[in-house]
Write a protein that binds this DNA or RNA. Structure first.
Lengths: 209, 209, 209, 209
DNA sequence: GATGAATGAGTTTTCATTCAT
DNA sequence: TATGAATGAAAACTCATTCAT
């Protein structure tokens, strides 16, 4: 189940690397960095272990690239997808929450466990021990909250909100609410915690729940 | 640096266990479960490794007791402390955020790193792999959000808010905001993310930021 | 369930040692030397671990005394008991096998497992690694086969057998048959292997099965 | 000192596994399961410890495969070898005892210690604690006594015996005698105990000692 | 570009034994 | 005589990483 349309012109080596990346990203997400062994990644990717080290300097750098990979997936499927589908800023926000909820719901149904936010997971586990991972996750979350900042800006421009706040701050707060919601969902193993948080997000923007 | 007033009547063995617990809790918090080795815990606690296993079935169970230990610390120092100091619900909320901010600020100044929320950290890292840890963290966070639920209820009773929501839901949302804020602070290595979220929390309650 | 009538005049210390001995002997028999931890012995004996080392130089020497203890039990309950109960040499042999069978049957019913011969067990496990244990077991088995040697001698004297062999050799062979039978019973978890061997023993003596 | 003609077509990995197996089997036999450390096995096999765990799930499973390995060796060298060399059932029995005696004699001369029967040793030590080992040993001994059952059947068919017994029972009894003899030899450190038992075995079959 | 095999250095866990009171 | 507590040494087992082909 390749999650990304891999380039048809990709060389054999690029495909191998991609397979490893998909396997690793999936496993890191569903479990954790430390709990996933390189052995298991290559087993799932169906490649030789030495190939792993041909394409990645070490496990940490593989994780780094996984964050990038998950980033591009999330941006496409969650943010860009929602923005393309809906024009109204509030509907966009709703769609974002809906898509995230659906993804977690499906994962719970199939795997019994809710994986939470892949970026928060990595960040939580590794921020204090790996500065490069911390920075990468910081960067990724930074790219996401601009989507939510824009939702607020659009809502404001359309007169949908009475709140008059610093957009950057609102963007970050919305991101924080989303992060908190996914973490809750994971820890309580309850996907509905994500949709529950939508009303909070709307309140921040200043629209009725 | 004992974080808790340990009972004066404690036996020698209980004190040893307590020392291990303090060392382990601190290290798990500042780093992560997997990145902290039992060797290092007993080194910090200045006990023999076999003693660790005399008092704890294994590393996982030690972590479990660490969650309990951090829970009692947090409840006392953050929640009960704030409630005892302030009577006004909004002031209580502010005090909670303030105390959490101060703790993180201090840790950043001393250790260069922001540890984030000990419960979210554990939960994030282990929820999908250790059901007993997941349940313990779920339980702990459950105990915390009732404090915030009460803040909302009190605010409502005092006519400080115009919002009319289900208190349990508000409690959970406030907890989510706090969690998201601590995670942000950790990942962005920026303690101010905690205080920044206070305005979001207040907005949810329905009081002016 | 003390297996031996301990002296009423025994001091407190002697009783403690006796309790340890009983616990250790029982556990070594039912499991094995290496698989039984000193911790578990003192737990069953309900004594402090340091007491164990007050009465026994170390685990090996405790095992050594266990062999002696089991020897006296076995001599009384199996050999002397059978000899006292029966006068006829063949009946005596039958009674020996019967008593051993009953003991194993009961143990299987209660513990699901057949422990086999305590002396063979110790010997098998330790003979090549502990010369003092090997010698002790050799001595004990040596004391036992004289009972069987005497059975043969008596049978011969009574004209119950036509075989004319060196009695010492017959004694050893009978002991070997018994040992083999108990080992079979243990490995096949089948107490009847003991009674099955009676016919072999009788054949050696030269009486009809 | 490879005891088995290993396949020339074996891969490098298979050869490594074989080396470990040979080292482990030898050491378990000469000492005991618990007394042999994985460290020492890999030292003798001249492989890295991790390789041990690449080829065997754990120590217990290695022991399990050792039993299989010793089984094939014993079947070839002792039973099949004797049957191939001799046609007469009694001569076959004598040859079996002779070969076992020679093996033990040689081991005593070289190692000072008689290792006894590898299967009885394992069984004795582990039967009550490892059900999978107990079953494996039971199975192996079961395969051996059919050789001795056949000796009795052949002897009977040739009119060499007057005894008229259930062949399966005789097979088991002969196996028991052999087992008892090897155990005696080990505990008394006297290889001759094996040859001494031959007369017992012959008596059971019903031929003159 | 790929892979079977190997490995150094850890990592958790255990155990017999002893100390201090 | 007894015991709560501690511990050195080693045990089984693991893991990221690299080698040789």
């Amino acid at each position: 189940m390749p999650l990304l349309n891999t380039n048809d012109r990709a060389t054999k080596g690029e495909l191998t690397k991609q397979r490893i990346l998909e396997a690793a990203a999936q496993m890191f997400w569903k479990s954790s960095y430390h709990n996933v062994r390189v052995d298991k990644i290559v087993e799932l990717a169906e490649v030789n272990k030495a190939s792993f080290y041909q394409y990645f300097k070490n496990k940490e750098h593989a994780a780094l690239e996984c964050v990038d990979y998950m980033f591009s997936l999330t941006r496409e499927h969650i943010f860009e997808g929602s923005f393309a589908q809906e024009q109204d800023p509030i509907k966009r926000l709703e769609e974002i929450y809906h898509r995230i909820y659906m993804a977690h719901k499906e994962l719970k149904d199939n795997e019994e466990q809710i994986p939470g936010c892949p970026f928060m997971n990595m960040g939580s586990e590794l921020a204090t021990d790996s500065e490069i991972i911390r920075q990468k996750v910081e960067q990724v979350l930074g790219e996401f909250y601009v989507y939510q900042q824009r939702i607020y800006e659009d809502a404001k421009a359309k007169g949908l909100t009475t709140m008059d706040w610093e957009p950057e701050l609102v963007g970050r707060q919305l991101q924080g609410i989303l992060n908190g919601a996914m973490s809750s969902a994971k820890i309580r193993n309850r996907p509905e915690d994500i949709t529950d948080a939508l009303v909070t997000a709307k309140t921040i923007i200043g629209v009725p729940g």
